[in-house]
């Protein structure tokens, strides 16, 4: 289909301190209904959105981190996390949630959604996107 555009959601803020992370997630879920080619990028403090074991009991806010696991159901298969941003924050991919999708073209095999990419690779991914939504 020629009318499918490449959407890239760019997430650069930590969750809970501002509304950006939650807003982005909601727009992603709503936007998924339009069946476009959607990818998510997490860089700078945005990488904190994907940490595992988030517990918001003490701050009286809803913990929306479990919702990232539902992205596979919404056919979102490309989640890019920037290597340099992880390293600058003393994090590795093991500190992040394990996110997967089921590949219907491969007998519903479960595959990893997260790809760690360098800033250079991410710059190319941004360049090749048709629509960039920044949060």
């Amino acid at each position: 289909m020629s009318d499918v555009k490449k959407f890239l959601y760019v997430n650069r803020k930590a969750p809970y301190g501002t509304i950006y992370a939650l807003e982005s997630l909601e727009v992603v879920l709503i936007g998924a209904a339009f069946e476009q080619d959607v990818a998510l990028a997490f860089l700078d403090d945005g990488v904190y959105q994907l940490t595992k074991d988030q517990n918001t009991d003490g701050i009286e806010m809803k913990n929306f981190s479990p919702t990232y696991s539902a992205l596979g159901d919404y056919d979102i298969r490309k989640i890019y996390v920037e290597k340099e941003s992880l390293e600058e924050r003393g994090l590795t991919i093991d500190d992040l949630q394990h996110l997967t999708y089921e590949d219907e073209d491969d007998d519903w095999a479960e595959k990893d959604s997260i790809q760690v990419v360098t800033a250079k690779e991410l710059a190319e991914i941004m360049d090749q996107s048709d629509v960039i939504l920044s949060f």
């Binding site: 879920l29 998924a32 209904a33 913990n63 929306f64 479990p66 919702t67 696991s69 159901d73």
Partner: peptide, 8 residues
Amino acid sequence: DEYQIAPA
């Protein structure tokens, strides 16, 4: 309960 959203 698992994902904290009502699915589309």
